[in-house]
Design a protein around this nucleic acid. Sequence first.
DNA 1: AAAGCGGGGAC
DNA 2: GTCCCAGCTTT
Length: 346
Amino acid sequence: MSFQKAIVTWYQINKRELPWRSTTDAYVIWLSEIILQQTRVEQGLPYFHKFLLNFPTVRDFANANEDEVLKLWQGLGYYSRGRNMLFTAQQIVAEYNGIFPVKYSQLIKLKGIGDYTAAAISSFAANESKAVVDGNVFRVLSRYFGINVPINSNAGKKLFSKLAQELIVGQVPAVYNQAIMEFGALQCKPKPGCETCPIAQNCSALINQQVNVLPVKLKLVKVKERWLNYLVASSGEYILIKQRQSGDVWQKLYDFPVIETSRAINSTDPHFVGQVKALFGEEVIIRPVCQKRHLLTHQIIYVHFFVLENYMINFNQHADIKSVLVDDFKSLPHPKVISDFTEMYL
DNA sequence: AAAGCGGGGAC
DNA sequence: GTCCCAGCTTT
């Protein structure tokens, strides 16, 4: 039996029932594919339902504002996905009359859609013969065919794309693409179940004892440490907030005035106190409240929260800081570490 | 080619 | 702790 036939047969028996598999609506598929980028199915599923409920059509999505989209996206991470979706939804309405394109050549031009997502939407919505190459496919192909070219090198991306595209010829694209990804997600996992694998007898990695070294991936990311000291200034009814700008994590999300330091500090650190007083006046009182370690892929962020009392602020000199009702602040989109704090202390 | 971008689950 | 998830964009 061919590799492809075995994969598809395995899929028919073992596949999960997932909501985006029972539609050919390109908008719905797009929604699911963007949400699932670098995101596990279980984590993305509730967001998929939430977005579809709030935005049943691409026109509904296009009519949203950015805060609304990011609030729905809150907690899912990689927030540029949400911002790009709004941009693309508006483009679909403006340039495609609200009809979501299904051709790979059109999809690839849209913001937030790369090779993988264009192949996924075009194959699932219109059976275009474009092979998906995601983390699952890299793993399955590298093991089965014994390919040790690094999957995150340019040569590797080219090689695996070419191989995947050759393998899809003669298959039903929508089914085969789903099948090979599902096979990677459930059977040929990072820690695979070779004992029950239907193609084990032809698997190069298993035969050559390479299962635990394939796929090969280049270099580990070096993690940067940073210290964010948040200044919580609230009258009880109002609170001072900022919107995060580009060039850093959590772009466009809302948090508090913050002083970043290169090491841990406490509320009496002279340099820190000086900066706080420059912002909030000489009479300000700084009271430490809590601290937590927040982990991102590339950063370890030590977050300290300091509540301020007796503070004063000149909004003319600090146009980026705004005073809003606490309840209004809560309804804005926040990084996880801020929404956790807010729920606990505000 | 390399770096930046979240949060969470499995082990 | 490590690895990695239905990746994309920017430099």
